[in-house]
Amino acid sequence: MMHIEEKKGTPLSLGEGNNMMTKILLVNITVFILLFFTEIIYGIEGNKPERFINDVLSQVLLPSTIHGLLQHPWTIVTSMFTHNSFWMITSNMIWLACFGTMLQQHAGPQRVLPLYLLSGLVGAICYILGMQLIPSFRELQPAATMTGASASIMALAIGATVVAPGYRLLPNLPIPFWIITLIFLVVNVVTHVITSHDLTIVPALIGGGLTGFFYMSQWKKGHDLGAGFNKITYKITHMFHPKSNLHVVK
């Protein structure tokens, strides 16, 4: 069994080298800024908001029907990096920075991106299945879409809690990390169910949470489910790097 040491008093940081969380945050924020300015340009040109939705958002948000997914299969990936409101991007990025950095510090940056992507895919599949199988959801299909990193953030939250449930974010504050996760779960439910009156995201959140639990539980046992993905991405990103001619002298 892999030994996991819960570090105490280590501050959260987004400025270290090889920080996968910084890269994921930048991608999400960049996509939001591009969409924001694109919407402004559409408005300046006199287009109605529906035009922007049909021309742009429909190309990146996850549709609620299987037919829509077959027409836009790339949305199963783009939707997990797309946020179409300031409140959504702000709240999601705060939680993403918190849980993602926690997981990165206790399990390494190699765990963050594979879990983010895998849980986003599982969340998207659970969302589409829920829209097909739950009768009250089927009525909402014509206008329903899924957007945002909520499923991935749920996975990172559960995954970080599995790895270090008793970790203290602040050494002088006697609150274990699992309490922070519990607060996050309550806030998420209130935001989606009570404030937004939207239950359709619940299957995606459940799928993301279960993925995070299974992924990091396996990692603690010594099984890295993202090892293959990391090897492939390493080869791709280093494909054109010059090979070193240095030899190790023993």
Rank of each mutant, 00 (worst) to 15 (best):
I201P: 14
T10Y: 10
F229N: 07
L12E: 15
Q141R: 07
L57D: 00
L26G: 12
Y127E: 00
M88E: 11
L140I: 06
T75M: 03
Q110A: 05
F240A: 13
E139C: 04
P242L: 00
L70G: 08
S85E: 13
V60I: 11
M154H: 10
I153K: 11
M102Y: 13
P63E: 04
T161D: 01
Y42C: 06
L35W: 06
K23A: 05
H67E: 14
A143T: 12
G43E: 06
I194N: 08
I53N: 12
R51M: 09
V193P: 08
M93S: 14
A227I: 04
I125R: 11
L118N: 02
V193M: 08
T30R: 08
D198I: 00
S119E: 04
M239I: 05
A160D: 02
T30P: 15
N230A: 02
F240N: 10
L156Y: 14
T147A: 03
L25V: 02
P73M: 04
I236A: 06
A107Q: 12
Q59A: 02
G9T: 02
H197V: 09
I94T: 03
F177G: 00
I4V: 08
I44S: 15
I53G: 15
S150W: 09
G222D: 15
L210Q: 07
G209H: 03
P174C: 00
S64D: 02
P242H: 01
H72M: 02
K48F: 07
S150Q: 00
A160G: 11
V163N: 07
L182I: 03
E139V: 05
Q71V: 00
G159Q: 02
N172Q: 15
Q105N: 04
T78N: 15
V122C: 01
A124Q: 09
Q104D: 05
T90A: 13
A107N: 15
L225H: 09
V112H: 14
F213V: 03
G148P: 12
